[in-house]
């Protein structure tokens, strides 16, 4: 039973972690992309389409990434190229993504595919308790964990990561040092789009192997909130994603077990937990913003 619960938690947390990882990188470069939900749903539609046409989870995942990136490229063209307001462009991206995904999905609603294969290492996967949990997940779970392990290293220990953070904290200074802020930010936005697309594709590829319009059901917005919740730190982001996943699974078990608390309250628990942790973090830091300093502001070098 415990193993089953833990496995469900991993599945529920993975799309959140993937999407939030990408958004974290985007925001560290100073761009606020509110279109995560739109990039996720288009990733879900294209991911399913790819897998359905070819029968390959791998192709599906790549299609999801490509679709998320395509939408992100549009966002980058608007906000970085034309310096359009990022909030407005992000919201428009979500609405566009939702509409396009419905259109793309028309052809394969009601179809189903085989779920992503799970890792099976003879001996290891059969271990009691930890076997399936550690060695028996689908490949995308390992991708999400690999990403969240690599991101802090890249951001703190590599030149590329430091430059990216400079673009997010003080774009003018980065520019003065000769870095191409627009290019750095565009790459960060594309990375975020790819992650969101993959997170969306995770839903029809591994979570529930079919496509339905609106199947992301607000997960993109949760991913956005998680980035703030994590105060833009990758380690906290991972903790946040798994905390959110855990609370949302545990509340279902609590209901089935019949502990007698109102289900509406329990459905609200993941959000409540997030808000409380957020407040605690800002208290510990005695207020003050922990956001990248240039977050949400357009940078036009010649102005």
């Amino acid at each position: 039973m415990l193993e089953a619960i833990l496995l469900s938690i991993v599945t529920a947390s993975t799309p959140l972690l993937l999407a939030a990882s990408g958004e974290l990188v985007t925001e560290r470069a100073g761009v606020l992309n509110l279109g995560v939900e739109g990039m996720m749903i288009i990733g879900a539609a294209c991911g399913f389409g790819g897998a359905w046409l070819t029968g390959s989870t791998m192709v599906g995942a790549l299609c999801g990434i490509a679709a998320g990136m395509a939408l992100a490229a549009l966002f980058a063209a608007m906000t970085i190229g034309l310096a359009v307001n990022q909030v407005a462009a992000g919201l428009a991206l979500t609405i566009l993504g939702t509409g396009l995904a419905g259109l793309i999905g028309l052809g394969f609603v009601g179809e189903r595919i085989t779920a992503a294969p799970h890792l099976a290492i003879p001996g290891l996967t059969d271990l009691p308790m930890v076997g399936k949990l550690v060695f028996g997940q689908d490949p995308l779970v390992y991708v999400s964990l690999g990403l969240i392990a690599a991101i802090p290293f890249v951001l703190a220990r590599t030149r590329a990561g430091l430059v990216l953070r400079a673009a997010g904290d003080n774009a003018a200074a980065a520019h003065a040092l000769g870095y191409d802020v627009a290019k750095i930010r565009t790459l960060a936005v594309l990375f975020g789009g790819g992650c969101a697309g993959l997170a969306g594709a995770y839903l029809p590829l591994a979570y529930t192997p079919f496509f339905a319009p609106g199947m992301t059901a607000g997960r993109g917005w949760i991913a956005l909130a998680l980035v703030v919740f994590a105060s833009w730190r990758p380690a906290r982001l991972m903790a946040g994603a798994y905390l959110f996943g855990a609370v949302s699974i545990l509340q279902l078990h609590a209901q089935a077990f019949g502990i007698g608390l109102p289900s509406q309250l329990m459905s609200a628990l993941p959000y409540l937990a997030t808000v409380i942790v957020l407040v605690l973090i800002s208290r510990v830091r005695r207020g003050g913003s922990v956001a990248p300093a240039a977050l949400g502001t357009a940078f036009v070098p010649d102005r």
Partner: peptide, 10 residues
């Protein structure tokens, strides 16, 4: 869908 699947599993 995701939540419905989780509920069924639970």
């Amino acid at each position: 869908p995701g939540k419905e699947a989780d509920a069924a599993k639970a």
